[in-house]
Amino acid sequence: MTAAASRTGRPPLTEQRKAETRLEIARAAVDLFVAQGVAATTGEQIGRAVGVSARTVWRYFPGKEACVRPLFALGIEVVADCLRAWRPGRPLEEAFEAAVPTDSRLVRGPDRTTIGALVRLTRTEPGLRAEWLQTYDEAEPAFARALAERAGLPAADLRPTIQAAMFNAALRAAVEHYAWRVTEETTDPATAEAELAATLRAALTVVAEGLRDSP
């Protein structure tokens, strides 16, 4: 038994449980941000929605806007895996169509509506916009490593770095294009799913034009 466990009488949280708690806090924060705005939302309210204290919320996140980061970052490794699996000579969108629909790490179901609402908020909430852009800054090196591995190039090679920047920008533009043009009043979940898939497919087709000469 660890010292921490003997002091509290409870076993320490596993990494999986910590990740689950972070995601629960993120979803609760988004619901509150959408319902009443970021300024009116407190750490106490976020914690109450999840069943934890505000102190616990701040243990996981440095500020309330940062609470949304797990939702933004959820698909980064999935996308990187798809890039590694992209076969030479095959359309880029094919790699994603084969893997994304069955990968449980990606946001799906009601969370797609949540993500759409959250991305729309980034237009008017500077703190959320900063978190959104920071997520893409962190994603780009992961995409570059995946493209380098696929091509058998060193991780520091300039070519996959540039390709990752192109891909990352296209991915962000596609998600924003979808989120800023789809409203809850006019789109049901099934239609939203189809529209998001179509938007991402179109973006991948465009970016593939710049990546088509990859090995």
Rank of each mutant, 00 (worst) to 15 (best):
Q45I: 01
A40H: 06
R108F: 14
R108D: 12
T183W: 11
P62T: 01
P88G: 03
T102G: 14
T124F: 09
P215R: 12
V107D: 11
A29D: 04
L13K: 12
G51Y: 05
W58F: 15
L83E: 00
E97T: 12
G9H: 07
V78I: 06
T205H: 15
P101F: 10
R105V: 01
A156K: 12
L32E: 06
R172I: 10
T124E: 13
A80C: 03
R55Y: 07
V57G: 02
P91M: 04
P88S: 06
A35Y: 07
S104M: 15
A156D: 14
P91F: 10
R55H: 10
T56N: 08
E44C: 07
L92T: 03
F143N: 04
Y178F: 09
R145A: 15
A142K: 15
G51I: 01
A170I: 01
R90D: 11
A26S: 00
R181Q: 12
V38C: 13
A169C: 12
S53F: 01
D81G: 12
R10V: 10
L92Q: 01
L204E: 14
A98Q: 11
L128P: 02
R87Q: 15
V38T: 14
A28M: 03
A39N: 04
P70A: 02
D81C: 07
C67F: 00
A190M: 01
R145S: 13
A98P: 11
T135H: 08
T161I: 07
A173L: 06
G51P: 01
V34M: 03
L153W: 10
M1D: 05
T14D: 09
I115L: 14
R150D: 14
T183E: 15
E24K: 13
K18W: 07
R84Y: 07
L158K: 13
R7V: 08
T122R: 03
V50T: 03
R123A: 13
D81H: 07
T113F: 07
R120W: 00
F72D: 01
G47H: 04
V57M: 00
R159K: 13
V182M: 15
P11T: 11
L153D: 08
I46W: 02
R22E: 06
V38P: 15
R120S: 07
A66V: 01
T102C: 14
W132G: 00
E24G: 10
G89P: 14
E65L: 03
I46V: 07
T42R: 05
V30N: 01
G152T: 02
E77W: 05
A49K: 03
D31T: 00
L196M: 15
A66C: 06
P88I: 04
A144V: 00
T191Q: 04
D81W: 03
G75Y: 00
G47Y: 06
Q134K: 13
Y178Q: 04
P160I: 03
A203K: 00
A144T: 05
R69V: 06
S214H: 10
E185Q: 12
T2V: 00
A5F: 10
S6F: 11
D111N: 08
E184W: 12
G152N: 04
D81Y: 01
T2I: 00
R120H: 05
T161N: 12
R69A: 09
W180R: 11
T2E: 07
A192K: 10
R112A: 11
L121S: 06
Y178M: 09
V50G: 00
E149I: 09
D188T: 03
A95Q: 05
D157G: 13
T161L: 11
V52A: 02
G51Q: 06
T56I: 02
L211Y: 02
V68C: 05
